[in-house]
Each structure stands twice: as C-alpha cells, then as structure tokens.
Amino acid sequence: MLAFLAFHKDGVRRCSAAEQLWPDCTMQRAAANLRSALCHARRAGSANVIDSVDHCLQLSSPVWVDLHDVGNLAQEVLSGQGVPYRAAAGLVDELGRELLTGWSDSWLLLERERWDQLRLHTLEALAQQFQVAQQYVPALHTALAAIAIDRVRETAHRIVMEVHIAEGNVASAVKCYQEYKAFLDRELSVAPSRRMTQLAEDLMPM
C-alpha cells in the first residue's frame, strides 16, 4: 500500500485505492481489505505514515520518496534547466533502474509505462545536453542507458551516431547505423527514419 500511495502525491480516494489494489475482489471485499491493511500499517510502527482526510489517503508529509526527487530532477532537465554535472551523473544511474522489479501488481502497469517514458525522454535530453557541451563520454553513457531501456526507439541511437561524428569516429557512426538498421529489419521489418539514414549517407563515400 505504501508503494501505491507513493505514486499519488496529492492523495487518492479510498474507494479508488481499494479498487486498484484488489481489482479481483468485490468492492465490499476490497474495502474490507483496505481497512485491514490500514490497521496493519498503523500497528507496524510508532510513526503515522498514512494520512486519511475526507475519504482520501496519502503518505504523511515527513515520508520521503526517492521517486519524487528523481521526478523533480527529470522535470528540470526536460524544461531546459541546467543540472549540475554531479547531479546529472547520479540522475542517469537512477533513471537506469526499473520500477519495482519483480512486482506483478496490475496497478503498476500504467506507472511503469509512465516511468519508462519519463526516463527515456530525460536520458535523451541529458545526452543531447552533454553532447552540446562536448562532454562526449557522458553523452555516450547516457544515450546507451536509454537504448538499454528501449532498443527500438531511434532517438538515442541517433545521438550515439552524432557523438561519434563529433569525435571524428566516422566508422563507429556508420557501424552504429548499420547495426540499428539490421535490428529494425530483423525485428520489425521497418527501416530507420529518413533523418537517420541521411546522417549515415552523408558519411559514406559516393
């Protein structure tokens, strides 16, 4: 339950929480399960970690959630604000982590999709910022972290190509393109975008 509430900073109605946490139960059974879980949570520790106000539940304000801090930093990156290098390096590591690995709860499906989209876009934005600053090693590290999340998505592959080109490693850039092109053809029978293809063609001798 604590993990579920961590994704609802502004709180969630009790009926909605019960329905999402116990989707296979009747509403009456789910509500009873919720009451039982809240009772156990109160007995588990001396500090009250769950607030219940006007039929809404949320984590108490002193409770720290690491995901919120990572999300705030990610929003700073996506809004174009500069992030100190050390903070950016730590953010790359945090964004490389999967959300609640091993959990199979149905309510996590949407949260995982949101998390994956957030970390993909943030990693790509960070990689581009590193590239513009000519910090090529962290740019490659960050782009490769995005590729590890979604090999199909093109943006990070293209950034890797652009970094290789900026470093003068033309052969590496062409190899990156050819490997990605072969992967797409093998897995999906599609080709890279015209933008990426043109980038590769500009490197190849006529």
Score class of each variant (00 low, 15 high):
131 Q>W: 02
117 Q>C: 11
159 I>H: 07
108 L>E: 06
102 G>Q: 04
126 L>S: 07
161 M>N: 07
147 I>S: 01
122 T>Q: 05
101 T>L: 15
150 D>K: 06
105 D>H: 15
129 Q>G: 13
89 A>N: 06
149 I>C: 07
139 A>L: 10
111 E>D: 03
111 E>W: 13
103 W>V: 06
150 D>N: 14
101 T>P: 06
92 V>P: 06
122 T>L: 06
100 L>N: 03
154 E>W: 04
152 V>S: 08
152 V>E: 11
162 E>S: 09
112 R>H: 10
113 E>M: 08
94 E>N: 12
101 T>Y: 11
138 P>A: 05
98 E>S: 14
150 D>L: 03
138 P>M: 10
99 L>N: 02
145 A>N: 02
141 H>A: 13
144 L>G: 01
109 L>P: 00
148 A>H: 11
131 Q>Y: 02
147 I>G: 01
104 S>W: 12
149 I>G: 05
120 L>P: 01
146 A>Y: 04
145 A>Q: 06
91 L>A: 07
132 V>W: 08
147 I>W: 01
124 E>A: 09
127 A>L: 10
125 A>Q: 14
155 T>A: 08
90 G>L: 12
139 A>Y: 04
96 G>M: 11
133 A>I: 00
157 H>D: 01
127 A>T: 02
111 E>H: 11
141 H>K: 12
124 E>N: 15
112 R>I: 13
148 A>P: 00
160 V>H: 03
115 W>Q: 01
96 G>D: 14
136 Y>Q: 05
135 Q>E: 15
147 I>N: 01
114 R>E: 09
115 W>E: 00
142 T>E: 04
135 Q>Y: 08
154 E>C: 01
107 W>G: 04
112 R>K: 15
127 A>E: 01
90 G>R: 14
141 H>S: 10
140 L>H: 08
123 L>K: 12
93 D>H: 11
128 Q>G: 15
132 V>Y: 12
119 R>A: 07
161 M>F: 06
159 I>G: 03
123 L>S: 07
152 V>C: 06
135 Q>K: 13
151 R>L: 12
158 R>P: 00
124 E>M: 13
134 Q>N: 10
97 R>K: 15
94 E>M: 13
162 E>A: 12
159 I>L: 12
114 R>V: 10
91 L>N: 08
131 Q>D: 02
92 V>N: 03
130 F>M: 02
123 L>R: 10
153 R>Y: 12
137 V>C: 04
144 L>I: 09
110 L>C: 04
144 L>R: 11
97 R>G: 05
132 V>I: 14
95 L>I: 05
124 E>Y: 07
115 W>L: 00
106 S>A: 15
125 A>C: 15
146 A>L: 05
131 Q>T: 06
94 E>C: 14
148 A>M: 07
120 L>F: 07
91 L>K: 10
121 H>W: 11
143 A>M: 02
148 A>K: 13
132 V>G: 00
137 V>A: 13
156 A>P: 03
139 A>V: 10
148 A>V: 00
135 Q>N: 11
143 A>T: 09
123 L>V: 09
133 A>V: 04
140 L>W: 04
119 R>F: 04
127 A>K: 01
100 L>K: 05
132 V>L: 13
155 T>E: 07
89 A>M: 13
161 M>A: 09
143 A>C: 08
98 E>C: 12
120 L>E: 09
159 I>Q: 05
151 R>I: 00
